[in-house]
Every structure is written in C-alpha cells, then in structure tokens.
C-alpha cells in the first residue's frame, strides 16, 4: 500500500471553462505530452544530447497556470522547461530545433534542453541550477511594479509565473524571494510542482514540513495546495492568484501535487520509485481526466479530441522535420551573443 498525501478535492461543479477555453487547454496538454514523447524517441535515436528532463504527467500544471495568463505575462522555468515554453507560446519548431542544437532553436543552439529562452514570448528561461530562476522571476515581477509605480506606466500590470520543484523549496532562494515578494507585494505566482522526488531524494526525506504551501503563511502570503493532476483545479486557483497579483495584492504560493511519469532525466535509471507508487499516479493521468470531463460535460465530442491529437501529431512531426533540416550554428559565430553589441 502506497501512502500518498490526500489530494485536495476540486468539485467539478466549481469549474467554469468554456468550450473554446477547454479546447485550448486540451490542445496545450496534448502538445506537451506528444512533444515530450517525441523527445524521448529522438534522444534514444541519438538526435539530441546532454541532460533532457521530460514533463510527462505534469501537464495540468503548465497548461492550467499559463493558459490562465495573458501572452504578455512572464513565465520562468527550470531545467524541465520544454512544456512551459510551449504553453508560453514558443513554437514547437523552435523548441525542437534548440534540442537538436540548431541555429533556428529558440536559444540559437547555445542553450539546449535546460536553457530555453524567448524574449518574444516573455519566457525568462530555462534555469538549470535548482531554485536560481526564483530570484530572476522575482526581478521580472519587481520590474512590473517599478514600471507601474516609479515610472507611472498604468499598462504595467503583467504577472509572472515562476515554476520550480519540491527540491527547490528547500533552497534559501525560495525563502528569500517569498520574503521579498510578500514584503513588496510583487505580482508573482510561485508554482511548486511537487512531484515527490528531487532526482532520487524523496520529498519527505528532504524537508521538515512536507506541505510546502504552508510555508507561505510565515511570510503572510496566501498559500494553496492543489491537485496537480486536475487541470481545472490548477486553472481555478491560478486564475484567482493571477487576479490578485494583477490587482496589486501581491504574490501567491501554489503547491501543485503532481508526478513525473518518467525518470528525472532520460539518463536516470529511475530505480528509486516503487512500481506501486507509479501505478497510483499513472491512474491519475491529467490528460485522460480532462478529456473525460470535456466529453462528460458535453463541451466537446470525442472526435474533436481525436482531431486535436491528429493535428498536434502533425505539429510535432513538422517540428522534427524543421529541426532536422535546419542549419547548424555558424562556427564563425562562436563568439556571438557574449555581449549586447554582438
């Protein structure tokens, strides 16, 4: 018997999502899942290299939060960043090309899997050291407040979503930034994707208070736990937090209880997690759950979901084709991008 934290109930009656919104969110989740499956295939076929961390299983968090935001809001991610980038609007072509190390990649082949960036889409990165993105995201949120209050720019109401894992929640930068964000009422969502494992370190073995959302309270910040396998629950809590941030009421800590369906990275033999534990979580597949909701509520027909899947499959195939046929970075540009003038 696997002891699992009880997932907070989210009554579907509380969900308010239109057919159009539902289709957008479902498509985003499918895009994330199919993209990552293709990455695994390409990695094992020797098309991409280095450390590749896949997001399978956690799609409800990325889609639930980012699709509750505006396109001019900011997103900050970790080394497990492919799907956050896709949700933020970075085209699959440019993400895939980056993983192939090509000049057409969103980071021009200089970054790789863990360093996806897109200024055009307000994607702040791709930060590979655990927790180091938290201060950067806090800085983006500070910038919005600064623009609004010091520069008098009333259009400056952007919100920043900062994603990180349970492992990062034991790092000083997490606590330091929660403090500053609460102190200065910064427009930011701290979204912990608690997938229970920091590589091989079980969350309970690493922290004295496993319920991360409770750590918000010491900073006078609202903190919530949410079923991270239920995109409607994530979306609902994110909408509230975004509204609060946009209204100048400050940050929110959201702990999404989720699970990665694959190892830490494609190089991880994944020997620490029990089969029983995995099976419990596999049965909570967030995409299946949302598909069932959409059809049971008669928001969409099953065929429409299949259409989305077919369309996304062709997006993924196109992305691979684009990445494969794209040029390598020009060796004569080895030194380019070191300085702003380059």
């Amino acid at each position: 018997m696997v002891q699992e934290r009880t997932l907070p109930e989210f009554p579907t009656a509380l969900a308010s999502i239109t057919r159009e919104e539902g289709l957008v969110v479902y498509e985003d989740m499918i895009l994330g899942r199919f993209f990552e499956d293709k990455c695994a295939e390409m990695y094992y076929r020797g098309k991409m290299f280095g450390f590749v961390h896949l997001y399978n299983g956690q799609e409800a968090v990325s889609s639930g939060v980012i699709k509750a935001m505006r396109s001019d809001d900011y997103v900050c991610s970790t080394y497990r960043d492919h799907v956050h980038a896709l949700s933020a609007g970075v085209p699959a072509r440019n993400v895939m090309a980056e993983l192939f190390g090509k000049a057409t990649g969103c980071s021009k082949g200089r970054g790789g899997s863990m360093h996806l960036f897109s200024a055009e889409h307000n994607l702040l990165g791709g930060f590979a050291f655990v927790a180091e993105g938290i201060p950067v995201a806090t800085g983006a949120a500070f910038q919005t407040k600064y623009r609004r209050e010091a520069l008098g720019d009333e259009t400056a109401d952007q919100v920043t979503a900062c994603f990180f894992g349970d492992g990062a929640a034991n790092n000083g930068q997490f606590f330091e930034c929660l403090n500053m964000a609460a102190l200065w009422k910064l427009p930011i969502l701290f979204v912990v994707e608690n997938n229970k494992w920091a590589i091989g370190m079980a969350h309970e073995r690493a922290t004295s208070q496993p319920e991360i959302y409770k750590k918000a309270s010491v900073f006078g910040m609202p903190g919530f736990e949410v079923d991270g396998m239920d995109v409607l629950a994530v979306r609902s809590i994110a909408q509230e937090a975004v509204a609060r941030a946009r209204a100048g009421e400050g940050p929110t800590l959201i702990e999404a209880l989720t699970y990665r369906f694959r190892g830490h990275s494609l190089a991880d033999p994944d020997e620490m997690r029990s089969k029983a534990e995995k099976e419990v979580w596999f049965s909570r597949d967030p995409i299946k759950k949302f598909a069932a909701y959409l059809t049971e509520q008669n928001l969409v027909q099953h065929d429409e979901l299949l259409d989305i899947e077919r369309r996304i499959q062709s997006v993924i195939d196109d992305a691979v084709q684009f990445a494969q046929s794209s040029a390598e970075p020009d060796p004569s540009e080895l030194y380019r991008y070191i300085f702003a003038e380059d």
């Binding site: 900011y74 900050c76 702040l124 180091e132 938290i134 201060p135 950067v136 995201a137 806090t138 800085g139 983006a140 949120a141 500070f142 910038q143 919005t144 407040k145 600064y146 623009r147 209050e149 010091a150 000083g172 930068q173 330091e176 930034c177 403090n179 500053m180 102190l183």
Partner: peptide, 28 residues
C-alpha cells in the same frame, strides 16, 4: 528618487542579485 528606485533590500545577496538580473532582462 523614492524607495523603489533606491531599494533597501533584506540581507539576501544571492536573491537580490538574481532579482536585479531579472529586472535587467525585462528592461530596467
């Protein structure tokens, strides 16, 4: 210049330095 433009930070060097990087990336 006011307290936002001359910002007293908590004693948290790595976080306020990272905050400055994020602010610089976004135009300050």
């Amino acid at each position: 210049y006011g307290e936002l433009r001359v910002l007293d930070t908590p004693i948290a060097e790595n976080s306020f330095t990272g905050l400055a990087v994020g602010a610089a990336m976004t135009g300050l």
